[in-house]
Simulated assay, not measured.
Amino acid sequence: MTDVVVSADWLADRRGEVRVVDVRDAWEFEGIGHVEGATNVPFDSYRGDDGEAGKLPGADAFADLLGGAGVSNTDRVVAYDDTHGVFAARLLVTAELYGHDPDLLHLLDGDFSAWQREYPTTSAATDPDPATYEAAFDTSGPLVGIDAVCEAIDSGATLVDTREAWEYEEGHIPGAIRLDWRELVDDETRGLLPEADLRDLLAERGIHPEDRVVLYCNTARRISHTYTVLRHLGYPDLAFYEGSLTEWEREGGDLVTG
């Protein structure tokens, strides 16, 4: 297992060495409080319809956003939200797709609640010094398009649908395995299940580390969390279908119900 997903204790020991990014809405960041020194980059600010694929914001927009938040390409980043990490994971995946070294990208396990239970928070304003952030869409990265998904189906790769059961039953890509992203999370701790439980669940569903794993949902938000967890567990061959079911249906892809 790697340290892609890190604990509140891990972050507390390294606060001066990392850039902490809070992706909640501004009113939560200011009104509820945040990790001291964190900068606020709300989820809606790095989602768009004019980027290179799916809901990516575009390289220039993302560079301006993170640079304005004081984040540079060489920073080690820890992101968090208060929704089990799904929105924060989307920031990390977006950064990776625009060329940020994935070894420098971390998700706070247990989200803001985990930090708040153990460590002090602040409502003080954060005014980071602007930084230079260079973003370029990585065409050799984990993002794949619809043709690669069709090839994955034909080649026997493991296709994973990370949506809820009712969504899967209404229609999914042929051959897809259902794994609701929330099944990887412990509702009580708000963090990931213990590693042994995660591996048992994945093995039970037929999602193995030696497989090529292609992930999708509806708009590539939920797969961001599953992708991050599988990276944390050391799965080496992961593909991220950014267009997800939205594009698949628009392009006339077959769906299986039930």
Rank of each mutant, 00 (worst) to 15 (best):
residue 110 G to H: 05
residue 46 Y to M: 07
residue 126 T to H: 05
residue 95 A to Y: 10
residue 103 D to C: 02
residue 107 L to Y: 04
residue 87 F to N: 14
residue 78 V to L: 04
residue 58 G to D: 06
residue 114 A to K: 06
residue 68 G to L: 01
residue 104 L to W: 06
residue 118 E to L: 14
residue 109 D to Y: 07
residue 106 H to M: 06
residue 99 G to V: 09
residue 91 L to G: 10
residue 116 Q to N: 12
residue 88 A to G: 13
residue 78 V to K: 01
residue 90 R to C: 08
residue 123 S to H: 04
residue 70 G to C: 08
residue 57 P to G: 03
residue 79 A to N: 05
residue 89 A to L: 12
residue 115 W to L: 06
residue 79 A to K: 05
residue 87 F to M: 14
residue 82 D to Q: 13
residue 49 D to G: 15
residue 109 D to Q: 09
residue 50 D to V: 07
residue 106 H to P: 14
residue 66 L to G: 00
residue 126 T to V: 10
residue 61 A to I: 00
residue 104 L to S: 14
residue 56 L to P: 13
residue 59 A to L: 03
residue 98 Y to P: 14
residue 62 F to K: 00
residue 71 V to Q: 04
residue 82 D to G: 12
residue 124 A to G: 09
residue 99 G to C: 14
residue 54 G to Q: 02
residue 54 G to L: 00
residue 71 V to I: 12
residue 56 L to T: 06
residue 105 L to E: 11
residue 81 D to M: 07
residue 113 S to Y: 08
residue 95 A to N: 14
residue 55 K to T: 12
residue 59 A to Y: 03
residue 114 A to I: 03
residue 50 D to F: 08
residue 100 H to A: 13
residue 97 L to V: 15
residue 75 D to L: 07
residue 125 A to R: 15
residue 58 G to K: 01
residue 80 Y to C: 05
residue 73 N to L: 00
residue 70 G to A: 04
residue 95 A to T: 11
residue 87 F to S: 15
residue 64 D to T: 08
residue 108 L to G: 02
residue 63 A to C: 02
residue 51 G to A: 04
residue 99 G to M: 10
residue 122 T to P: 01
residue 63 A to M: 02
residue 111 D to I: 10
residue 111 D to K: 09
residue 90 R to I: 10
residue 119 Y to K: 11
residue 114 A to P: 08
residue 73 N to Q: 02
residue 58 G to L: 03
residue 96 E to H: 15
residue 48 G to E: 12
residue 117 R to K: 10
residue 97 L to Q: 12
residue 53 A to F: 12
residue 61 A to K: 07
residue 116 Q to A: 15
residue 119 Y to I: 00
residue 76 R to D: 15
residue 115 W to A: 01
residue 86 V to L: 11
residue 48 G to D: 14
residue 48 G to S: 07
